[in-house]
Write a protein that binds this DNA or RNA. Structure first.
Lengths: 199, 199
DNA sequence: GTCTATACGAAGATAGAC
DNA sequence: GTCTATCTTCGTATAGAC
């Protein structure tokens, strides 16, 4: 997460970071301004739609950020490699934040009652993550139906595992989930491993 | 969810219901009073600890409610039967609320930055759900380690699946998750089915 | 583009009457 | 036990100067 050049981008990134820790409702503009170091007077200049717009953009930004990261990782190390990297990612996040941070997309989903646009953005993010992973499985010989189902289980498992980990303040649930997901993914790709291309 | 006799209990139940739909922060006392029909003047009489206390109790109450339901279902129909019942439960919830409602325990977890007690209660709930399911698997011949890992995946998968379903306003993700979980659970219990008792 | 000041509303919490 | 009134804080949002 390199430092962004413009105040606007920094505000979006800060919003995503604050959302994952405090949630959407508890995140205030004051926090965003302080965290991003952006000028106070710029909020409604850049985001005339107010908090709804900021949260929606933060959701989409975080989703795209992770999607790109995942695409690169999949190309380099395949589905099993991505799962490994994701597990490390969350281990680091929980270590750095003492289990305070979670997934901003999940926050946008659970607190979307007043922000319908955020929920819609979250839906698109999850769908994209899922289809990226499913496609990677397909390209390694997993049947489309199976690939899609597995990819859905992967992101459901991770999102849920992150919640269990936060609630229990323990890495154990998430580690178990990743262990199971890895086994399933490797098994689905067949004995040839993650780079095989059976059809 | 039978109607509770006392105003106090009704407030707790209403809080849980409102949390799952609006989240913790967006749920106000005004909503709780209106939804429960409880007397306005009773809030701080019954909950001197304010919102923190109400949210904590709502989290624990909802957790216990589901736990008891699950125990009964497990005794009657085993792990696979519980998964089936859970899928139906969520299908009904989403149908009734147009995908607005989710899991109140998840809401308590994600929005616990100002309410540490709620997070702790949520952690206990998840742990209890998991161990109830794991024990049912064990009593059907699944090895302890495997039973525990599977039970964790089950609740992570469901919690995550509920989030994906809400975000995408579609039952599809959750149905896929349940399909996968059912297969895994049945496979783990062996060819004798959910009532066998191999060791 | 960015600032300050302020309007406005909402929500948690308290006090004291009944 | 329950009510009303109120205090206080806070957060979004707007207006207008610089």
């Amino acid at each position: 997460m390199a430092v962004a050049p413009t105040p606007r981008e920094r505000m979006v990134q800060s919003a995503a970071l604050l959302m994952r820790e405090y949630g959407v409702e508890a995140m205030s503009f004051a926090q965003v301004v302080e965290h991003s170091g952006a000028p106070r007077g710029s909020i409604y200049y850049y985001f005339p739609g107010g908090k709804a717009q900021l949260v929606k953009e933060a959701t989409s930004w975080a989703g795209d950020f992770i999607a790109h990261r995942n695409i690169r990782k999949l190309e380099a190390d395949g589905p099993a490699g991505l799962l490994e990297a994701s597990e490390k990612f969350w281990r680091d996040v929980f270590g750095e934040t003492d289990y305070r941070a979670g997934c901003p997309i999940a926050a946008a989903t659970l607190e979307s009652s007043r922000l319908p646009e955020a929920r819609e953005a979250a839906g698109k993010v999850f769908e994209r993550w899922q289809s990226i992973f499913a496609e990677a499985l397909q390209s390694r010989g997993v049947a489309p139906e199976r690939a899609s189902a597995l990819a859905t289980l992967v992101y459901a498992g991770i999102e849920g595992g992150v919640i269990l980990a936060r609630a229990q303040r323990s890495l154990a649930p998430l580690e178990r989930v990743f262990e199971e997901l890895r086994s399933l993914v490797i098994a689905a790709m067949g004995p040839h491993g993650q780079r095989s291309s059976l059809s």
